[in-house]
Nucleic acid binder design. Structure first.
Lengths: 160, 160
DNA sequence: ATTACTATGTATAAAAG
DNA sequence: TCTTTTATACATAGTAA
């Protein structure tokens, strides 16, 4: 029991490393808890092991999710240094990108549908003299309106 | 400089609290760094202050985002205890919900467009005898096909 | 607010049960 | 693998510049 000074490098011995990991993870979470209580701040921590078996989230995945959401929603104020701000912008962009990825698929579908509608509209208009359907013309006007609204919303989302 | 034992409660004095916060936050991030290096694991930590001015993410918002993504993608194995698993399922659900929220808006728009199309289709069919437009009928068949594909994809997304 | 100091509390490496 | 035990390294409260 002669504690040695620990070098800042990977602990070579696997048993020692696992032992150390367990203790340090516990210590880390205790520190997080203290920080939260003593200083009245929100905090979360995530530790991932290679195999995932010992991955852990503090204080809980749900709470961590809340903290993450809060950071995304209300990032540090402009009093931060420029470098941090740049990184935070990158962070927001990345999270937004993740959220938007699936959304993009849908918007593409929406746009695809629009094209189909536009074509159909042209075709129908070309046939309008023949069909002379007042109701159909009304329907197309309505659809044009809807498409414009969807377009606006897509534009809004893209400028986030 | 006679360091006293710190109680596990909010530090009343604001100056002391801010002082402590700064030191502890630095200490926490150092611990995270050590854990990562000594034990070869991934880790991140998020600390949020009320005003947001001193909120900070370790090691960086981008890296934290990666760690979060990794946890979401590959959660702890089944060797975890039941309570943790339940919480993790909740975590995943919550993250998925966040991602899906905007997606849902778009799928609603897609469905709304479908309805419009269906109505338009019915109207057109009703007028088909009058318009007798072969091209338009062909277009509607194409659209029906596309709608079916979109429906399938929406169903796929919803069963995630 | 930031840096420096140092006494002391706390975390933890190593050993052992 | 988990727990307990120490000795020691490390973190940090209090103070001052």
């Amino acid at each position: 029991m002669v504690r040695s000074k620990v070098k800042y490098e990977l602990i070579a011995d696997e048993r020692t490393r696992r032992e150390s990991f367990k203790k340090r993870k516990a210590g880390l979470f205790k520190k997080l808890d203290e920080l939260k209580t003593l200083c009245h701040v929100e905090a979360c921590g995530i530790v991932l092991t290679g195999d995932g078996a010992h991955s852990e989230v503090w204080p809980s995945p749900n709470k961590a999710s809340e903290v993450i959401d809060r950071f995304i929603t209300r990032p540090p104020s402009s009093s931060s240094h420029r470098n941090n701000r740049v990184d935070q912008i990158g962070f927001l962009r990345q999270n937004l990108s993740r959220v938007s990825k699936n959304l993009d698929k849908e918007t593409r579908k929406v746009k695809s549908l629009e094209k189909e509608l536009t074509i159909a509209e042209c075709v129908t208009k070309g046939e309008a003299n023949i069909s002379n359907s007042h109701e159909l013309q009304e329907m197309l006007r309505l659809m044009e309106k809807k498409i414009a609204m969807v377009n606006k919303r897509i534009a809004d989302i893209e400028t986030l």
